[in-house]
Design a binder for these strands. Structure first.
Lengths: 214, 214
DNA sequence: TAGATTGTTAATCGATTAACAATC
DNA sequence: TAGATTGTTAATCGATTAACAATC
Protein backbone atom coordinates (compact mmCIF):
# COMPACT_ATOMS: atom_id res chain seq x y z
CA UNK A 1 0.00 0.00 0.00
CA UNK A 2 1.94 3.03 -1.19
CA UNK A 3 1.26 6.08 0.94
CA UNK A 4 0.18 9.07 -1.06
CA UNK A 5 2.10 12.27 -0.70
CA UNK A 6 -0.43 14.04 1.49
CA UNK A 7 -0.78 17.81 1.88
CA UNK A 8 1.17 19.02 4.87
CA UNK A 9 -1.91 20.96 5.99
CA UNK A 10 -3.54 17.60 6.73
CA UNK A 11 -0.42 16.03 8.24
CA UNK A 12 -0.14 18.84 10.78
CA UNK A 13 -3.59 18.05 12.15
CA UNK A 14 -2.97 14.33 12.62
CA UNK A 15 -0.87 14.66 15.81
CA UNK A 16 -3.72 16.68 17.31
CA UNK A 17 -6.13 13.83 16.68
CA UNK A 18 -3.51 11.43 18.00
CA UNK A 19 -3.20 13.24 21.31
CA UNK A 20 -6.96 13.21 21.83
CA UNK A 21 -7.12 9.51 21.02
CA UNK A 22 -4.37 8.81 23.55
CA UNK A 23 -6.42 10.57 26.21
CA UNK A 24 -9.61 8.73 25.25
CA UNK A 25 -7.88 5.35 25.28
CA UNK A 26 -6.48 6.13 28.71
CA UNK A 27 -10.09 6.62 29.84
CA UNK A 28 -11.18 3.37 28.14
CA UNK A 29 -13.30 5.13 25.54
CA UNK A 30 -13.71 2.76 22.57
CA UNK A 31 -15.55 4.84 20.00
CA UNK A 32 -15.46 8.48 18.98
CA UNK A 33 -17.46 10.37 16.36
CA UNK A 34 -16.17 13.12 14.10
CA UNK A 35 -18.60 15.41 15.89
CA UNK A 36 -17.01 14.82 19.28
CA UNK A 37 -13.55 15.16 17.78
CA UNK A 38 -14.76 18.43 16.33
CA UNK A 39 -15.74 19.86 19.70
CA UNK A 40 -12.38 18.83 21.16
CA UNK A 41 -10.23 20.23 18.38
CA UNK A 42 -12.18 23.20 17.06
CA UNK A 43 -11.98 21.81 13.50
CA UNK A 44 -15.26 21.00 11.75
CA UNK A 45 -16.49 17.41 11.73
CA UNK A 46 -16.47 17.48 7.92
CA UNK A 47 -12.83 18.46 7.85
CA UNK A 48 -11.88 15.73 10.30
CA UNK A 49 -13.68 13.06 8.26
CA UNK A 50 -12.05 14.34 5.11
CA UNK A 51 -8.61 14.33 6.71
CA UNK A 52 -8.97 10.73 7.83
CA UNK A 53 -10.64 9.54 4.62
CA UNK A 54 -7.64 10.79 2.71
CA UNK A 55 -5.71 7.77 3.97
CA UNK A 56 -8.49 5.17 4.00
CA UNK A 57 -11.89 4.28 5.44
CA UNK A 58 -11.08 3.98 9.13
CA UNK A 59 -14.54 4.51 10.59
CA UNK A 60 -17.83 2.65 10.78
CA UNK A 61 -20.89 4.35 9.33
CA UNK A 62 -23.55 4.93 11.90
CA UNK A 63 -21.09 4.38 14.74
CA UNK A 64 -17.89 6.37 14.54
CA UNK A 65 -14.19 5.59 14.81
CA UNK A 66 -12.62 2.93 17.01
CA UNK A 67 -10.09 4.81 19.11
CA UNK A 68 -7.44 2.09 19.33
CA UNK A 69 -7.67 1.24 15.64
CA UNK A 70 -7.55 4.87 14.53
CA UNK A 71 -4.59 5.55 16.80
CA UNK A 72 -2.64 2.72 15.20
CA UNK A 73 -3.43 4.05 11.75
CA UNK A 74 -2.38 7.59 12.64
CA UNK A 75 0.89 6.43 14.18
CA UNK A 76 1.63 4.54 10.99
CA UNK A 77 0.76 7.44 8.69
CA UNK A 78 2.79 10.02 10.59
CA UNK A 79 5.66 7.59 10.99
CA UNK A 80 5.64 7.31 14.77
CA UNK A 81 5.14 3.52 14.91
CA UNK A 82 8.84 2.86 15.35
CA UNK A 83 11.78 4.04 17.43
CA UNK A 84 12.07 7.78 16.83
CA UNK A 85 15.01 9.89 17.84
CA UNK A 86 15.86 13.53 17.66
CA UNK A 87 18.64 15.83 18.79
CA UNK A 88 18.68 19.44 19.95
CA UNK A 89 21.46 21.64 18.62
CA UNK A 90 22.07 24.68 20.77
CA UNK A 91 21.82 24.27 24.53
CA UNK A 92 21.02 27.86 25.51
CA UNK A 93 17.82 28.69 27.37
CA UNK A 94 15.56 27.82 24.49
CA UNK A 95 17.37 24.63 23.52
CA UNK A 96 17.47 23.41 27.10
CA UNK A 97 13.78 24.13 27.53
CA UNK A 98 12.84 22.29 24.34
CA UNK A 99 15.09 19.39 25.17
CA UNK A 100 13.51 19.04 28.59
CA UNK A 101 10.03 19.60 27.23
CA UNK A 102 10.35 16.78 24.72
CA UNK A 103 12.15 14.47 27.13
CA UNK A 104 9.24 14.79 29.52
CA UNK A 105 6.17 15.39 27.37
CA UNK A 106 6.64 13.88 23.94
CA UNK A 107 5.60 10.24 24.20
CA UNK A 108 6.69 9.17 20.74
CA UNK A 109 10.06 10.82 20.26
CA UNK A 110 13.26 10.32 22.23
CA UNK A 111 15.84 13.08 22.59
CA UNK A 112 19.21 11.36 22.26
CA UNK A 113 21.54 14.33 22.08
CA UNK A 114 22.04 17.93 23.19
CA UNK A 115 24.86 19.86 21.56
CA UNK A 116 26.59 23.20 21.92
CA UNK A 117 30.02 24.77 21.41
CA UNK A 118 30.17 26.80 24.60
CA UNK A 119 32.22 25.38 27.49
CA UNK A 120 29.74 27.04 29.82
CA UNK A 121 26.99 24.57 28.96
CA UNK A 122 28.89 21.48 27.81
CA UNK A 123 28.66 18.85 30.53
CA UNK A 124 25.46 20.29 31.94
CA UNK A 125 22.80 17.67 32.60
CA UNK A 126 19.24 18.10 31.30
CA UNK A 127 16.92 15.44 32.70
CA UNK A 128 19.87 13.08 32.86
CA UNK A 129 21.09 13.87 29.35
CA UNK A 130 24.51 15.50 29.13
CA UNK A 131 25.20 18.45 26.82
CA UNK A 132 27.97 17.44 24.42
CA UNK A 133 30.29 19.34 22.11
CA UNK A 134 29.06 19.90 18.56
CA UNK A 135 31.93 17.74 17.31
CA UNK A 136 30.24 14.68 18.82
CA UNK A 137 27.09 15.29 16.82
CA UNK A 138 27.78 13.22 13.66
CA UNK A 139 28.62 10.21 15.78
CA UNK A 140 25.33 10.40 17.72
CA UNK A 141 23.31 10.99 14.54
CA UNK A 142 24.89 7.92 13.04
CA UNK A 143 24.49 5.74 16.12
CA UNK A 144 20.76 6.48 16.57
CA UNK A 145 19.96 7.00 12.89
CA UNK A 146 18.65 10.48 13.66
CA UNK A 147 16.63 11.99 10.80
CA UNK A 148 15.00 14.97 12.56
CA UNK A 149 16.84 17.72 14.43
CA UNK A 150 15.81 20.77 16.46
CA UNK A 151 17.86 23.89 15.87
CA UNK A 152 18.08 26.54 18.59
CA UNK A 153 21.31 28.36 17.87
CA UNK A 154 22.00 32.00 16.90
CA UNK A 155 21.27 32.89 13.27
CA UNK A 156 24.91 33.63 12.59
CA UNK A 157 25.89 29.99 13.11
CA UNK A 158 22.73 28.37 11.78
CA UNK A 159 23.78 27.74 8.16
CA UNK A 160 27.11 26.18 9.13
CA UNK A 161 25.46 23.80 11.55
CA UNK A 162 22.71 22.95 9.07
CA UNK A 163 25.32 21.95 6.51
CA UNK A 164 26.79 19.57 9.09
CA UNK A 165 23.37 18.15 9.92
CA UNK A 166 22.57 17.52 6.27
CA UNK A 167 25.97 15.95 5.68
CA UNK A 168 25.35 13.60 8.60
CA UNK A 169 22.04 12.43 7.14
CA UNK A 170 19.40 14.60 8.82
CA UNK A 171 16.43 15.15 6.47
CA UNK A 172 14.06 17.30 8.55
CA UNK A 173 14.85 20.32 10.70
CA UNK A 174 12.72 22.25 13.17
CA UNK A 175 14.41 25.64 12.99
CA UNK A 176 14.04 28.31 15.65
CA UNK A 177 16.82 30.53 14.31
CA UNK A 178 15.23 33.56 12.64
CA UNK A 179 16.99 33.11 9.32
CA UNK A 180 16.40 31.44 5.98
CA UNK A 181 18.29 28.15 5.74
CA UNK A 182 19.57 26.81 2.43
CA UNK A 183 19.21 23.06 2.13
CA UNK A 184 18.97 20.46 -0.66
CA UNK A 185 15.51 19.73 -2.04
CA UNK A 186 15.11 16.48 -0.14
CA UNK A 187 15.60 18.19 3.25
CA UNK A 188 12.54 19.71 4.93
CA UNK A 189 12.90 22.79 7.10
CA UNK A 190 10.07 23.96 9.29
CA UNK A 191 10.63 27.41 10.72
CA UNK A 192 9.23 28.67 14.00
CA UNK A 193 10.09 32.29 14.55
CA UNK A 194 9.01 33.41 17.99
CA UNK A 195 9.58 37.09 17.29
CA UNK A 196 7.33 36.94 14.25
CA UNK A 197 4.61 34.97 15.99
CA UNK A 198 4.46 37.58 18.71
CA UNK A 199 4.77 40.66 16.49
CA UNK A 200 2.06 39.51 14.13
CA UNK A 201 -0.38 39.23 17.03
CA UNK A 202 -0.12 42.95 17.59
CA UNK A 203 -1.98 43.47 14.33
CA UNK A 204 -5.17 42.38 16.07
CA UNK A 205 -4.79 45.01 18.76
CA UNK A 206 -4.71 47.64 16.01
CA UNK A 207 -7.96 46.29 14.57
CA UNK A 208 -9.57 46.41 18.00
CA UNK A 209 -8.65 50.05 18.46
CA UNK A 210 -10.13 51.00 15.12
CA UNK A 211 -13.37 49.32 16.00
CA UNK A 212 -13.42 51.22 19.29
CA UNK A 213 -12.94 54.55 17.55
CA UNK A 214 -15.87 54.09 15.18
CA UNK B 1 -7.44 56.02 5.94
CA UNK B 2 -9.26 52.96 7.29
CA UNK B 3 -7.07 49.86 7.37
CA UNK B 4 -8.63 46.94 5.61
CA UNK B 5 -8.99 43.71 7.51
CA UNK B 6 -6.08 41.92 5.86
CA UNK B 7 -5.67 38.15 5.60
CA UNK B 8 -3.54 36.85 8.44
CA UNK B 9 -1.46 34.94 5.88
CA UNK B 10 -0.16 38.31 4.67
CA UNK B 11 0.22 39.80 8.14
CA UNK B 12 2.47 36.95 9.23
CA UNK B 13 4.94 37.73 6.47
CA UNK B 14 5.22 41.43 7.28
CA UNK B 15 7.50 41.02 10.34
CA UNK B 16 9.86 39.02 8.15
CA UNK B 17 10.12 41.91 5.71
CA UNK B 18 10.50 44.25 8.67
CA UNK B 19 13.49 42.37 10.07
CA UNK B 20 15.25 42.43 6.71
CA UNK B 21 14.60 46.14 6.34
CA UNK B 22 16.05 46.77 9.81
CA UNK B 23 19.23 44.99 8.78
CA UNK B 24 19.44 46.87 5.48
CA UNK B 25 18.93 50.23 7.17
CA UNK B 26 21.66 49.37 9.65
CA UNK B 27 23.95 48.92 6.63
CA UNK B 28 22.77 52.21 5.09
CA UNK B 29 21.04 50.52 2.16
CA UNK B 30 18.42 52.94 0.80
CA UNK B 31 16.60 50.92 -1.84
CA UNK B 32 15.56 47.30 -2.16
CA UNK B 33 13.76 45.51 -4.99
CA UNK B 34 11.16 42.79 -4.60
CA UNK B 35 13.64 40.47 -6.32
CA UNK B 36 16.28 40.98 -3.64
CA UNK B 37 13.69 40.63 -0.91
CA UNK B 38 12.69 37.40 -2.60
CA UNK B 39 16.16 35.90 -2.40
CA UNK B 40 16.41 36.88 1.27
CA UNK B 41 13.04 35.51 2.31
CA UNK B 42 12.40 32.60 0.00
CA UNK B 43 9.04 34.06 -1.02
CA UNK B 44 8.52 34.95 -4.68
CA UNK B 45 8.98 38.55 -5.78
CA UNK B 46 5.39 38.54 -7.07
CA UNK B 47 4.06 37.54 -3.70
CA UNK B 48 6.08 40.20 -1.91
CA UNK B 49 4.82 42.91 -4.26
CA UNK B 50 1.28 41.69 -3.82
CA UNK B 51 1.61 41.63 -0.03
CA UNK B 52 2.84 45.21 0.06
CA UNK B 53 0.41 46.47 -2.58
CA UNK B 54 -2.42 45.22 -0.43
CA UNK B 55 -1.86 48.20 1.86
CA UNK B 56 -0.84 50.83 -0.67
CA UNK B 57 1.67 51.73 -3.38
CA UNK B 58 4.88 51.95 -1.35
CA UNK B 59 7.43 51.44 -4.11
CA UNK B 60 8.77 53.34 -7.10
CA UNK B 61 8.43 51.69 -10.50
CA UNK B 62 11.76 51.08 -12.14
CA UNK B 63 13.59 51.54 -8.85
CA UNK B 64 12.25 49.54 -5.93
CA UNK B 65 11.26 50.28 -2.36
CA UNK B 66 12.82 52.87 -0.07
CA UNK B 67 13.90 50.91 2.99
CA UNK B 68 13.24 53.61 5.59
CA UNK B 69 9.86 54.52 4.13
CA UNK B 70 8.73 50.91 3.80
CA UNK B 71 9.83 50.15 7.35
CA UNK B 72 7.68 53.00 8.66
CA UNK B 73 4.71 51.74 6.72
CA UNK B 74 5.13 48.17 7.96
CA UNK B 75 5.48 49.27 11.57
CA UNK B 76 2.26 51.20 11.21
CA UNK B 77 0.36 48.36 9.55
CA UNK B 78 1.41 45.73 12.07
CA UNK B 79 0.84 48.12 14.93
CA UNK B 80 4.39 48.32 16.22
CA UNK B 81 4.75 52.10 15.87
CA UNK B 82 3.89 52.71 19.51
CA UNK B 83 4.80 51.45 22.97
CA UNK B 84 4.10 47.72 22.96
CA UNK B 85 4.00 45.57 26.03
CA UNK B 86 3.49 41.91 26.70
CA UNK B 87 3.57 39.56 29.65
CA UNK B 88 4.61 35.93 30.03
CA UNK B 89 2.36 33.72 32.14
CA UNK B 90 4.13 30.63 33.39
CA UNK B 91 7.76 30.97 34.46
CA UNK B 92 8.92 27.40 33.98
CA UNK B 93 11.74 26.55 31.58
CA UNK B 94 9.82 27.49 28.50
CA UNK B 95 8.34 30.68 29.92
CA UNK B 96 11.67 31.85 31.28
CA UNK B 97 13.34 31.15 27.96
CA UNK B 98 10.70 33.07 26.00
CA UNK B 99 10.75 35.92 28.45
CA UNK B 100 14.51 36.24 28.16
CA UNK B 101 14.40 35.74 24.40
CA UNK B 102 11.98 38.60 23.90
CA UNK B 103 13.65 40.83 26.46
CA UNK B 104 16.89 40.51 24.53
CA UNK B 105 15.94 40.00 20.90
CA UNK B 106 12.56 41.56 20.20
CA UNK B 107 13.21 45.20 19.36
CA UNK B 108 9.61 46.32 19.23
CA UNK B 109 7.97 44.65 22.19
CA UNK B 110 8.73 45.08 25.87
CA UNK B 111 8.14 42.28 28.38
CA UNK B 112 6.69 43.96 31.46
CA UNK B 113 5.68 40.96 33.53
CA UNK B 114 6.50 37.33 34.31
CA UNK B 115 3.98 35.40 36.38
CA UNK B 116 3.68 32.03 38.07
CA UNK B 117 2.00 30.42 41.06
CA UNK B 118 4.93 28.33 42.28
CA UNK B 119 6.95 29.66 45.22
CA UNK B 120 9.98 28.00 43.67
CA UNK B 121 10.15 30.51 40.83
CA UNK B 122 8.44 33.60 42.28
CA UNK B 123 11.10 36.17 43.06
CA UNK B 124 13.52 34.76 40.49
CA UNK B 125 15.08 37.41 38.26
CA UNK B 126 15.09 37.04 34.47
CA UNK B 127 17.23 39.70 32.83
CA UNK B 128 16.40 42.02 35.69
CA UNK B 129 12.68 41.29 35.62
CA UNK B 130 11.27 39.61 38.72
CA UNK B 131 8.82 36.71 38.53
CA UNK B 132 5.63 37.72 40.33
CA UNK B 133 2.64 35.85 41.68
CA UNK B 134 -0.27 35.37 39.29
CA UNK B 135 -2.42 37.50 41.60
CA UNK B 136 -0.37 40.55 40.60
CA UNK B 137 -1.18 40.03 36.94
CA UNK B 138 -4.35 42.16 36.54
CA UNK B 139 -2.60 45.11 38.11
CA UNK B 140 0.34 44.92 35.69
CA UNK B 141 -1.95 44.42 32.69
CA UNK B 142 -3.85 47.51 33.70
CA UNK B 143 -0.78 49.62 34.42
CA UNK B 144 0.91 48.91 31.07
CA UNK B 145 -2.29 48.49 29.05
CA UNK B 146 -1.17 45.00 28.00
CA UNK B 147 -3.19 43.57 25.11
CA UNK B 148 -1.02 40.59 24.12
CA UNK B 149 0.07 37.76 26.44
CA UNK B 150 2.29 34.70 26.11
CA UNK B 151 0.98 31.58 27.78
CA UNK B 152 3.43 28.86 28.87
CA UNK B 153 1.63 27.00 31.62
CA UNK B 154 0.43 23.40 31.87
CA UNK B 155 -2.75 22.57 29.92
CA UNK B 156 -4.67 21.81 33.09
CA UNK B 157 -4.44 25.42 34.26
CA UNK B 158 -4.60 27.10 30.87
CA UNK B 159 -8.33 27.80 30.63
CA UNK B 160 -8.56 29.29 34.12
CA UNK B 161 -5.67 31.64 33.44
CA UNK B 162 -7.05 32.58 30.02
CA UNK B 163 -10.33 33.59 31.62
CA UNK B 164 -8.39 35.90 33.93
CA UNK B 165 -6.41 37.34 31.02
CA UNK B 166 -9.56 38.06 29.04
CA UNK B 167 -11.25 39.59 32.04
CA UNK B 168 -8.26 41.89 32.53
CA UNK B 169 -8.48 43.13 28.94
CA UNK B 170 -6.03 40.97 26.97
CA UNK B 171 -7.24 40.50 23.37
CA UNK B 172 -4.51 38.33 21.81
CA UNK B 173 -2.79 35.26 23.24
CA UNK B 174 0.23 33.31 22.05
CA UNK B 175 -0.57 29.93 23.52
CA UNK B 176 2.04 27.20 24.03
CA UNK B 177 -0.20 24.97 26.14
CA UNK B 178 -1.28 21.99 24.03
CA UNK B 179 -4.99 22.48 24.54
CA UNK B 180 -7.91 24.24 22.88
CA UNK B 181 -8.75 27.49 24.62
CA UNK B 182 -12.26 28.88 24.73
CA UNK B 183 -12.37 32.65 24.34
CA UNK B 184 -14.88 35.30 23.23
CA UNK B 185 -14.96 36.08 19.51
CA UNK B 186 -13.00 39.30 19.85
CA UNK B 187 -10.00 37.53 21.43
CA UNK B 188 -7.41 36.01 19.11
CA UNK B 189 -5.53 32.89 20.13
CA UNK B 190 -2.52 31.72 18.20
CA UNK B 191 -1.42 28.22 19.15
CA UNK B 192 2.13 26.94 18.94
CA UNK B 193 2.30 23.29 19.88
CA UNK B 194 5.89 22.12 20.01
CA UNK B 195 4.99 18.44 20.23
CA UNK B 196 2.91 18.67 17.09
CA UNK B 197 5.50 20.65 15.17
CA UNK B 198 8.07 17.99 15.91
CA UNK B 199 5.85 14.95 15.37
CA UNK B 200 4.56 16.18 12.03
CA UNK B 201 8.13 16.45 10.75
CA UNK B 202 8.54 12.70 11.11
CA UNK B 203 6.10 12.27 8.24
CA UNK B 204 8.85 13.38 5.87
CA UNK B 205 11.22 10.70 7.08
CA UNK B 206 8.57 8.11 6.16
CA UNK B 207 8.35 9.55 2.66
CA UNK B 208 12.13 9.38 2.31
CA UNK B 209 12.20 5.72 3.26
CA UNK B 210 9.56 4.86 0.69
CA UNK B 211 11.54 6.58 -2.00
CA UNK B 212 14.60 4.62 -0.96
CA UNK B 213 12.76 1.31 -1.18
CA UNK B 214 11.54 1.83 -4.75
C1' DT C 1 -36.79 -0.39 9.79
C1' DA C 2 -35.24 4.10 11.72
C1' DG C 3 -31.51 6.70 13.34
C1' DA C 4 -26.84 7.83 13.16
C1' DT C 5 -22.62 8.71 11.15
C1' DT C 6 -19.19 7.91 7.69
C1' DG C 7 -17.04 8.67 3.11
C1' DT C 8 -17.33 11.01 -1.26
C1' DT C 9 -18.59 14.26 -4.72
C1' DA C 10 -19.61 19.03 -5.88
C1' DA C 11 -19.40 23.95 -4.75
C1' DT C 12 -17.10 27.62 -2.67
C1' DC C 13 -13.57 30.18 -0.98
C1' DG C 14 -9.03 32.09 -0.52
C1' DA C 15 -4.30 32.25 -1.56
C1' DT C 16 -0.63 31.95 -4.86
C1' DT C 17 1.27 32.35 -9.47
C1' DA C 18 1.51 34.27 -14.02
C1' DA C 19 1.19 37.90 -17.20
C1' DC C 20 1.55 42.47 -18.39
C1' DA C 21 0.40 47.33 -18.50
C1' DA C 22 1.95 51.43 -16.07
C1' DT C 23 5.63 54.34 -15.13
C1' DC C 24 9.95 55.79 -12.96
C1' DT D 1 14.40 56.64 -25.16
C1' DA D 2 15.57 52.08 -23.16
C1' DG D 3 15.78 49.39 -19.14
C1' DA D 4 14.03 48.23 -14.87
C1' DT D 5 10.68 47.32 -11.59
C1' DT D 6 6.26 48.16 -9.53
C1' DG D 7 1.20 47.46 -9.10
C1' DT D 8 -2.85 45.21 -10.91
C1' DT D 9 -5.70 42.05 -13.34
C1' DA D 10 -6.53 37.32 -14.78
C1' DA D 11 -5.62 32.37 -14.28
C1' DT D 12 -4.50 28.63 -11.46
C1' DC D 13 -4.16 25.98 -7.63
C1' DG D 14 -5.29 24.00 -3.23
C1' DA D 15 -7.91 23.82 0.85
C1' DT D 16 -12.25 24.15 3.16
C1' DT D 17 -17.22 23.80 3.36
C1' DA D 18 -21.61 21.96 1.99
C1' DA D 19 -24.53 18.37 0.53
C1' DC D 20 -25.84 13.82 0.38
C1' DA D 21 -25.58 8.97 -0.83
C1' DA D 22 -23.87 4.79 1.38
C1' DT D 23 -24.27 1.82 5.07
C1' DC D 24 -23.78 0.26 9.84
Amino acid sequence: MPRRNAPFSIIRRLPIYLRILDNLIKKDVDIISSRTLSSRTGFTAEQIRKDLAYFGAFGTRGTGYNTVFLREKLLNIIGLDKENHTIVVGAGDLGTAFGRYNLIKNPYIGVVGLFDISDEVIGKSVEGLMVQHLDCMPEVIDKYNVKVAILTIPSSQAQTVVNKLVKSGVTAILNFAPTKLNVPDYVHVHNIDLTIELQSLFYFTVLEEEKDSV
